[in-house]
């Protein structure tokens, strides 16, 4: 198609795509703007002056509940989920390259993990912990609940990666006398590193934003989405938008950092 003049279809689809982007980003930019609402402003437009009042309000404990604490918990939990998702998915991806008894059931179990409604996981883990007599906590039961959502993504991505991975590289390394560990460390790992970073990003953000699976599993201390949800029902000032702006900017930061790492890995490989 390259080189031809742009067709009418192109322009129609381009406009459609543009509208889709407005649909995606429009509301987000609305709360971004409204979070700079003046001290006397309300939840809707117009802006009543411009101020940082609501961001300052955010740092005051009593105004919004425990924002700092819940952020720290969600951040830590996200990192835990990220590390475990990357390691376990990579191992499972390696395992699925060989044939082993139970491979098919395990694969279907991973796929099932994607389609089982999140509230059922939440209820099941909550009731199970209650019956066994373990207190639900964000670093225990919620950690496991989040993994049931991030692991299938990781495993499927790794599955797809290894399906397209030529074994010739590893055979070459082996014939040159590399040990299995050396082959893994110096041949396989650098090639799949960008995908692993992607899996890590998925793991972190899916956990950081997860609500339904934390509902019955987080225990006494709220994670950030639970805290935000609590605010939606009882906070009627733009401080809610300020929180939205801060968490969204944080997500953007994490995403750009990850993309930066992926690009850097690609460049380094191209040079080496």
């Amino acid at each position: 198609m390259a080189g031809e003049r742009r067709s009418v279809t192109f322009w129609i689809l381009a406009v459609f795509f543009g509208l889709f982007l407005v649909f995606l980003y429009g509301p987000l930019s609305a709360i971004l703007i409204l979070s700079f609402q003046g001290p006397s402003g309300g939840l809707t437009f117009p802006l009543n002056g411009v101020s940082l009042h609501w961001f300052r309000n955010l740092t005051e404990q009593q105004a919004v509940g425990d924002f700092g604490g819940s952020f720290r918990r969600s951040f830590t939990l996200g990192l835990m989920v990220m590390v475990v998702t990357v390691v376990v998915s990579l191992l499972a991806g390696l395992a699925f390259r060989r044939r082993f008894v139970g491979a098919t059931p395990l694969f279907y179990l991973a796929v099932a993990s994607l389609v089982v409604p999140s509230i059922i996981i939440s209820l099941g883990i909550g009731v199970m912990f209650q019956q066994v007599g373990i207190r639900p906590s964000w670093y225990g039961s919620a950690f496991g609940a989040h993994l049931t959502w991030t692991l299938p993504f990781g495993v499927l991505i790794m599955f797809a990666v290894f399906n397209r991975f030529s074994p010739a590289y590893e055979e070459a390394a082996r014939d040159l006398g590399a040990s299995p560990w050396q082959t893994f460390r110096h041949v396989l790992l650098p090639m799949i590193a960008p995908m692993l970073v992607g899996v890590g990003l998925f793991g972190f953000t899916l956990s950081y934003d997860e609500f339904a699976r934390s509902l019955m599993t987080a225990g006494t201390y709220n994670t950030l989405p639970l805290e935000i949800y609590g605010m939606t029902t009882n906070v009627t000032t733009p401080v809610l938008y300020a929180l939205g702006t801060v968490t969204t900017l944080f997500s953007f930061l994490v995403i750009s950092l990850t993309l930066g790492i992926i690009v850097w890995l690609g460049r380094r490989r191209a040079r080496g």
Partner: peptide
Amino acid sequence: PFLTSNII
């Protein structure tokens, strides 16, 4: 946008 908070 899909990597940011659903609730927000």
